[in-house]
Structure formats: structure tokens, C-alpha cells
Design a protein around this nucleic acid. Sequence first.
DNA 1: GTGAAAGCGCTAACAA
DNA 2: TTGTTAGCGCTTTCAC
Lengths: 358, 358
Amino acid sequence: MPVNKKTTLKDIAEKLNITVATVSRAMSNHPDISQRIKDQVKLLAETLNYRPNSFALHLRKQRSGMIGIILPKIIHYHSSTILSGVILAAHDLKYQVMICESGSTPDEEKNNAWALLNAGVDGLLVSLSNNTFSETHFSDMQNEGIPIVFFDKVPNSFIASKVSTNDYTGAFIATEHLIEQGYKNIAHLKGQIGARNSEPRFRGYMDALQKHHLEANQAFVYECLYCTEEEGFDAAQKLLKKRVRPDSFFCVNDETAIGVLAAMRQMNISVPGEVGVVGFCNLKAGAYMNPSLSTVDQAGIEIGKKAAAVLIDMIEHKADPNCPDYKHTIIEPQLIIRESSRKQQPIIAGKRKALQKQ
Amino acid sequence: MPVNKKTTLKDIAEKLNITVATVSRAMSNHPDISQRIKDQVKLLAETLNYRPNSFALHLRKQRSGMIGIILPKIIHYHSSTILSGVILAAHDLKYQVMICESGSTPDEEKNNAWALLNAGVDGLLVSLSNNTFSETHFSDMQNEGIPIVFFDKVPNSFIASKVSTNDYTGAFIATEHLIEQGYKNIAHLKGQIGARNSEPRFRGYMDALQKHHLEANQAFVYECLYCTEEEGFDAAQKLLKKRVRPDSFFCVNDETAIGVLAAMRQMNISVPGEVGVVGFCNLKAGAYMNPSLSTVDQAGIEIGKKAAAVLIDMIEHKADPNCPDYKHTIIEPQLIIRESSRKQQPIIAGKRKALQKQ
DNA sequence: GTGAAAGCGCTAACAA
DNA sequence: TTGTTAGCGCTTTCAC
């Protein structure tokens, strides 16, 4: 493997018998430099394959043009969608993205944050793990003047820039949709009390019931610990064995909703005829199910784009005295109606339906 | 937002009336430095929140401890799994990961590569887009001494370090499995001729047939252009309308296989009873299908880990005269048998099955 | 229009 | 045991 030393401004200067300063100015099209020199320099730079040394640039500017992102788990569909959005916006603004995965452990999250800062990122994008209850290290960083934007899973009790889905309205429109389809006894598979998105989704569900004068039945709210398909499966079976049965499920996420669908299949209960189901997240898998799963889409790309844009704005206006205050951007989610909740329209068997996606 | 200038070695040196050199040595536990000074320095560093300036370190060492990764599309399950593996291994070896997405366009891929290098990565991890036919820019980089490892979608006609799945054996064991289950007329939904993984998978299929003395029927091989569920759906319908019908499908990926399952449902053909189906990739969705989808798992985490390890090895032994030659690591995939191909065992209705995953 | 020199923060060879 | 000096590659102020 050849180890050709990279060309530097010095190399060019020596070959042309001028100083590095002149070369530097020529490369950046400084008006003082004669066209002749500029041409010479640029030609030589080209032929020698000159590329500026980023390390020197970073040191000089005390800026790297890199932002760091910390995610609980990359494989989650929602996370990787957000990541895509972040990268898009960052590249547009000439920033690169460095990535870490916390695996939902607060310690890793903290280590990741410091590792990214030590690697030289100009700012941090953070989606908190569900298990992070103390955000003091992040407030320390903020106080040091490090720009941080929280996204998706954002801290409640902590003043900072944030970008997140409106979980409340997402849950509200999903529940309202079930009501409009004629379902009356709507159960809710709820997330863990501690989990960041569970509470607003629960409130959205409750408020939609209230708006439409439906009584909220405590027995129809089932708390899931891990929000897996298995829990959804179990929950659905338990709830349907009660004397008063629910006729539909609004689930805190698509995994549990998929579990509900499996339970319905096993119990020979028709969906959406007898029971309606709506999830939350718009997993790819939902579109493939039979019946396909209605859900709430969180516009991950938008969340990512916005979070990156806010962060980079903070980075570039750090010294600005009238620097904008921390702001919380709320992205509105969108209801995706598929077969699992469409009671009102007959289901047309066939390809179009079988493969319907969005 | 406060803009506290960060503490440097100089600050510490001045406060302690010693030189930066001494401070530097004290911080790195140089044996020559007296314990007293070390204690003083470290204490002050601690209280002043000293963190070494990475830009200066990078400039000095001409190394950043960052690697870059280029993926066609992050949202693809397989890609994000690999990414996770890369990050795991990189962090273990004290490297950070910078990420780009090519969107499967060769131009973006090239831009990404240069952008990552300009940002200062020590080496590159690349999964080629299906549309990349000329890899000259990568060979230029290689010739400049930049360590590159290709993974997943690797170049054929280009000598470099590579890590990839054994597509051939994956296809072989999948097909053989169908044969062992008693299927005789095995169709293959094949990827596009140009696509990187299609050919070895096709060969694996053909060779498995041959090994078991089954005649390969040209009419049973269907070439998909985009390998979507829709194509899988169409293909299955077309093939099943022929006079000689296939009794099973080995599909180039899980998307097409999911399409086949949908077609079977619509045509009221029982799976695996009448027709068996096996996919490739082990998408999450496959486990949720009814029947759940048999598939080939590509051990994405392993691919990622290995690719990162090889790259970092190249980076750290760049100057090594007996530097290892480029090597191609092949990761063996694993067959995941679920319901869609298990003809031999009766399907037990119920929860365990409905939710079976791996 | 171009050169000289300083400095970004750090390390390491050489001196003392 | 500690200080001095040079240098990583680049930009920029100040001279000329």
C-alpha cells in the first residue's frame, strides 16, 4: 500500500518559488493576487492532487463542520428515518454527521456524548434513552456553550432546543378515527409510565374519547412494559376475554398492534369487521400485514431535517448576542388509514389492497 | 448561550508557573514528571474542565480516529444492522464513525467519499450502489494510500479489501431446504442482471437443483427489475398461471417473497401446504407475516464488525512494510426456517407460532 | 501584489 | 526533573 505523502501548500510554494501565504491566497481567490500566479498555483494544485488538510483548518477555525448524533437504536425504523433526514439537511449545509448508538443505556449515552465532543463535533443531536432520568451531563455541556438539540425522545424538565412529534395529536386523531369508523369500545395498549412518549399518547386517547362523549373504561387501558408484539398479543387476548369486550385497539406502537392482529387471527376475529386496530409509527411491516395496519406516521425525515437545521443554526450563531432562545419545534404526525380500521368501506380483495402502502 | 473559551494546556501552565510541555507530560503520565506536579496539574485540569483539543491532536498525529461509511440507503434493515456492527467494532477500537448516504447514485457516492476524506476520516467503508459500474475514483483513492474496505455490495473486478455475505451458499441452502421439504418445481425470483447480489444467488439456486438432480426450468426463473413486493406479487401470479406450475419460490429478497405470500393469499393457495416460499435478508416484517416467512439471515452485525476491524487494521498498519494484502472476507449466512416453507411439520396454530421470530 | 511572521493547541527531540 | 524549541498545515495581520 503506497504511502504518498499528501501535497501541502508548502510543496506548491517551493515548486513555484513563492511563499505559502501567496499560495493560500491564490487558492482562495484573494483579489490582491495576480491572475498569472493564481493560474499557476491552481494548475499545480490540480496536477499534484492538492487537498487542504482538514486538521489544520479545524485547528485554525476551531470548528470542524461535524455534528454528532446519539440514537438509542439505529435499527429502529423511526430512528433510521430521522438519521436520513439529519444527514440530508447537514450535507446541504456542508456539515458531516458522526453517529453513536446508546443502546438505551444512560451510561453509554453519556460516554457517547463525551466521545463525540472529544472527537471534535461542533454540536450534538440527542434522542434520549427511555432510561435516562438525569440529564445533568447535558446541562453541563450546555453551560459550557456546546450547542445541543434534543429530538424525538426529548427531556421534559429541562430547558433546551427540542424537535419532536406531537404525540398527543397523533393519538388524538388515531382514536378519533376509530370513533368515526363506528367503534365504541376503544381499548388502549399504553406504553410504560416512565417511557417518554407514552403519556401524551395516553392523554390524546383519553381526550378524543371525551370529546366524543365516550366513557373511558379503565379496564380497557393496558400498560405494556416492553411494547413488543408478544405483549400486544397477550394484551389483546386478555382484554377480549373480559365480560365487556373492546371493539377496537389504539396501540402505542406498531409492534403491539401487530401482536393484536396476530391475536385476532388466532381467535378468528375479523379485522376490521369485528375489531379495529390502529398502531403508531408507520413501520414498513404494517403495510405488508393482512389486513394492512392503520397507523400514525411521524414524519421522521422532517424531524431529522429540522433538528439538524436548528443545531447548525445554533452552531453558526453561537457568538451572536441576540442568539435565539431555545425553542421546541413540534412536528405534526399524519394518520395513515389502511385496512385494519376501515370499517366503513368494504374491503376489495385483490392486489391493490393486498399491497397497499404509504 | 455562554461562550466560555475552553481551557488549554497553556492556561494550566500559566496558573502553575510551569511550561506547556511539562503540563502535557504530566497529563500523559510521563515517568519523568514528579508526582507533585502531576497531582497539581491533574487537579487543576479537573477543576478547569480541561479537555484536549482534538483539532490540535489530529494535526499533530495526522490521524483523526474517525472512519467514514457510505451506504446506499440507511433505512434498509440490512444496512442499519451493518451500521450498528460497524459502530460497535469502531468504538471498541476507539474510533468514531462518520456516515453518508449515497441514495444509490454513483455521483453522490463519489461526492460522499471525497467529502468524508476532506472531513478528515482515516479510512473509508463503502457499500457500492447497484448503479456504480466504474470504481475508478475509489482506485484513485486507494493509490493515494487511503485505506478502503468494501462491504455488502462489493466490486467484482477490482482488487481491494472486501467483506460480504456468501450469497451463493445462502441461495444454495435455501433452495436445498425447499427440496428437502419435498418441493419439486422450485421457481426463482431473480434480481436484475446488473445487481450485485443477483448472480451468485442465481447460481446457488441452480447448483442446488443440479445437486439434487432436479431439472432447471427456464420458465421458472423470473427476473425482477426493482425487487419490490409488487413485482413479487405479479411474478407469482404469472408463474402460477402457466400450464406447468411451480410449487415453491426462492426469492432474491424478502420484499418479493412477501409479495408472493400476498399473491398466494389472494389466489387462495395455502402456504406452505401447496406452495413453499423462502426469501433472503431476514427483514423484521417476515417474522410478522402469516404464515411467517422463511428466509436467509445475512449476519449484518458480523459484516459490520468485520469490515470496521479490517479497515482499522489497515489504517494502523499503513506504513507497515509487510502490510497484509487485500483480503476478501466471506461471511456465511444462515437459513431461518419459519412457517412459509415448513411442509414436513404440521403447523400448530397458536401464539408460539403466530409470533415466531428469530 | 507578495513576503514575513505569528499563532491555532499540542507533542517530542534535544538541552540543561 | 523540567525548559526550550520546532513543527504539524493553514490563515491573516502587518510590512514593504
